[in-house]
Design a protein around this nucleic acid. Structure first.
Lengths: 194, 194
DNA sequence: CCTGTTATATGACGAGTGTTATAACCGTAG
DNA sequence: CTACGGTTATAACACTCGTCATATAACAGG
């Protein structure tokens, strides 16, 4: 039972899904992309593609959550910065070919389709990220409703930026949005409104 | 030469692409979805899927631009409202199965892939929408840099919201973002900063 | 050595892919 | 009526899809 190989498959799946969307990422491509044998895929993931997609979304969720939680200990502005840095790094490292696997699932799969669990996991991931940001903003003085709105605004605008950056082949959009939301977060903490 | 049928195909392609992403929308599905004969697809679109995808993105771009331009005559806040209403209507009418075809292309296709022209058209669409919003904000008193940042923040957050709304099966996210960006637009016009 | 479990390789299944060639349909002009 | 243009239908091309059954390999403990 090699946990490494399994994780490698899940991480590779998340990456490839973020590049092409789930339906266009075939099991053969997913195996090849993560450098793991195709024959092992159904050994580790008896649920097939549905299971692999679900785990890939949850994997991304967990990774982002852990990085976000850690940086939020230094305050909400630092957390926002880290949230942006996560995606910026992925864009740069992939030459703007990869993006957010969670967004990819949300855009390409239906709630009632064959990957419904993955869509639910995507919804949960967005909810987790918003919740973490919102709680931190609240704990640092922002009113509850402003914190919730601002957290959602941050997550949505960053996800949208990542997609636009891919189309542009540049981090310009994400950097502009980064500047704007950091300022908004600062204002919210100082003046209690967005 | 039936222009209606051609347009019907393009509009149907845009809709189906927004639901599943471009690679998962087969030519047979695209024809069936728009109620047009498959045999005619390559007659009207000799460039095949690439051409159909490209025209679908441009079609969406044009539609949004025209609605946005018209409503911006009543001021930037009214324009923002219209921009949000476009996507809200699509979400509701499709029971949160459809979304933005332009985002869909940006997420599922590579700049160097077989639908490179469609990706370029997606980049242009985002740029057009940001440009319209930005210009209107500037013309109504917002400083140039604030107008540009805010316009991008609006487009990105709305695109992100549409995706999240699909995953949630609810317009909650879009409505919250709508409230936030309308307030931001108002502030930018009154105080000259975001 | 043998055994048993886990992991990988291979090939096959029916269905679907984009695309093209070819044949049939259709309304209208001559 | 015939002839012909723009359309549509159909079948086929080589290929890939997700999935599974089966066969082989690798490696543990006795």
């Amino acid at each position: 039972m090699s946990a490494d190989l399994r994780t490698k498959m899940v991480a590779g799946a998340a990456d490839l899904m973020s590049r092409r969307g789930l339906p266009a990422a075939s099991m053969r491509d997913l195996a090849r992309h993560s450098g793991t044998p195709l024959g092992s895929t159904y050994h580790y993931f008896p649920g097939g593609k549905r299971q692999l997609a679900l785990e890939a979304v949850r994997f991304t969720d967990d990774q982002v959550r852990s990085r976000l939680s850690r940086s939020l200990e230094q305050g909400p502005v630092e957390g926002v910065r880290e949230f942006l840095a996560v995606w910026r790094q992925i864009l740069i490292d992939s030459d703007f070919e990869a993006g957010c696997p969670v967004l990819s699932v949300a855009v390409t799969e239906s709630r009632a389709g064959e990957a419904a669990e993955a869509v639910t996991a995507a919804r949960d991931a967005f909810s987790h990220w918003c919740g973490l940001l919102s709680r931190s903003l609240r704990e640092h003085g922002a009113p509850a409703d402003a914190a919730q709105s601002l957290a959602l605004l941050i997550v949505t605008s960053v996800e949208g930026s990542v997609a636009i950056c891919r189309a542009e082949g540049s981090a310009r959009a994400l950097d502009l949005v980064a500047h704007a939301v950091e300022r908004l977060a600062g204002n919210a903490l100082r003046h209690g409104e967005i």
